[in-house]
Design a protein around this nucleic acid. Structure first.
Lengths: 90, 90
DNA sequence: ATGATACTTAGCTTTATGGCTAAGCATTCG
DNA sequence: CGAATGCTTAGCCATAAAGCTAAGTATCAT
């Protein structure tokens, strides 16, 4: 959430958490390895930024999947409905 | 992905995986506790279905967050640009 | 040049995770 | 009724995760 406001240093990100810095760093590294954030070193400070494209990718994937599911559900409902109509018309 | 096609039994879902059934069950339970799927018992068979709303919630959250970030970035760019203009007009 | 700052690295400990087998319990088939 | 099927429960084990402290390194400020 914090990174949504723009870049921040490790120290700033870690500050609200009751956790030793090395422990916090591993979370940062994990997020970077997973492609959610990027980091660069500015002097002795490491700056973190959000990898916004990654979030766009996830959103697109979700959107696509849901569209597929819904299309399938629609076809199923259509089938059930048409079957009902046939039965009713007997 | 399989559940996107419609409901399926534990056995059917587990079949492609080289994993003992109890182990697989824990994955199912985890997904259910996390709200991604739902299950019901039909005779001795347990049927799993996708909790589509959950995916919609995530998609909405992502969409909202990204909109916020982009709005902020836009304002930042606008600020930088307007500052540039002032500097240029001296 | 020294001390302070902001991470980093190394190494350790505790706990959680993810897997297994064996045995149990309903439900369905013959 | 007895056997087969489809999970479930119980209990165990190996490994990975997530934390810590202590010590190290590279900047920055004086």
């Amino acid at each position: 959430m914090r990174l949504g406001n723009g870049p921040a240093s490790i120290g700033e990100l870690a500050e609200p958490f009751d956790m030793a810095l090395p422990s916090f760093m591993r979370h940062i590294q994990f997020l970077q390895n997973s492609g959610w954030i990027n980091t660069r070193k500015e002097g002795r400070v490491r700056i973190c930024t959000l990898e916004k494209q990654q979030f766009a990718i996830v959103e697109d994937w979700l959107s696509e999947q849901r569209a597929l599911w819904n299309a399938r559900t629609d076809r199923l409902e259509q089938f059930v409905t048409s079957k009902q109509n046939k039965d009713n018309s007997r």
